[in-house]
Design a protein around this nucleic acid. Structure first.
Length: 259
DNA sequence: ATGGTAGACCTTCTA
């Protein structure tokens, strides 16, 4: 089964592009981020027409995440546990049913810029809560995939111009350490399993000709539980989508699991 | 050092 993650930068502004990609890539499960709409404005019918079940955790104007699946979504959880006062819609998780069920989460980790503000503190707090939740999920000893826009550049090789990101929340030592800490819990980064080559970027800014200059970064990631990692067959980045008409600034990352 | 673009929405915020 193919599980994809894609920050679409407004699902309604991007609908034509998103539907086209669904038709071409035929993913089984998709984690969307930055849908930028409330639940009622999510274009569910467009995806249901393609045979997907839909679960949404939306928000007005900002953020918003969704899960789409060919098989029914059960046990849906909206919001990252650990802070009842957090109103930002950045996490949705569900059990993807089927002969070999997989729990899947769509993650939109806070950007955190500028550093030295409450935004960076929020990012670090969010990563700490994600770590705690991942520990809880690992205790279940089930296959699960945490996929999304992590807003973390893990290593210098994950940026075309790493020096440009000095002082940016995406490349701060604390952000990178928190990402490493997640992996240290026993999660497998799908990327490293299948493709260790540098330059495998997932984001190119709209500004300053970043795409034309290949000024990209790798910030969309998929972390797998041991039970999911055992089923990992491959990973691909749909880089060509960045050159389509009216593209998102992110491209889809697709993880293939056996079964 | 600045500004460049995109989206939601209404004037500025987020990225």
């Amino acid at each position: 089964m193919r599980i994809a993650t894609w920050n679409v930068n407004s699902v309604n502004a991007r609908l034509e592009t998103v539907v086209r990609w669904f038709e071409e890539a035929k993913p089984d499960v998709v984690c969307l981020q930055e849908i930028k709409c409330v639940d009622e404005k999510f274009p569910s019918e467009a995806f249901e027409r393609l045979g997907y079940n839909v679960a949404v955790h939306g928000q007005k104007t900002y953020n918003g995440v969704a899960l789409l699946s060919k098989t029914p979504l059960e046990d849906v959880r909206r919001g990252l546990p650990g802070d009842e006062t957090d109103e930002q819609a950045r996490y949705i998780e569900a059990l993807v049913s089927g002969p070999e069920p997989v729990r899947v989460a769509s993650i939109y980790l806070p950007n955190g810029n500028p550093i030295a503000t409450e935004k960076f503190a929020y990012k670090m707090g969010w990563m700490s809560r994600l770590n705690a939740h991942a520990r809880d999920l690992l205790a279940l000893e089930e296959p699960f995939v945490l996929a999304g826009d992590y807003n973390v550049i893990p290593e210098p090789r994950d940026a075309e111009f790493p020096a440009n990101w000095t002082g940016d929340a995406l490349f701060q030592p604390e952000s990178r350490a928190a990402f490493r800490a997640l992996k240290s819990l026993g999660l497998t980064e799908a990327y490293l399993q299948a493709d260790g080559a540098p330059g495998a970027y997932t984001f190119w800014d709209y500004q300053a000709g970043a795409w034309q200059r290949n000024n990209g970064i790798r910030i969309d990631h998929a972390l797998l539980s041991p039970q999911a990692a055992d089923r990992l067959v491959g990973v691909s980045i749909h880089r060509d989508v960045r050159a389509w008409e009216k593209p998102s600034d992110h491209v889809p990352l697709v993880v293939e699991l056996d079964g």
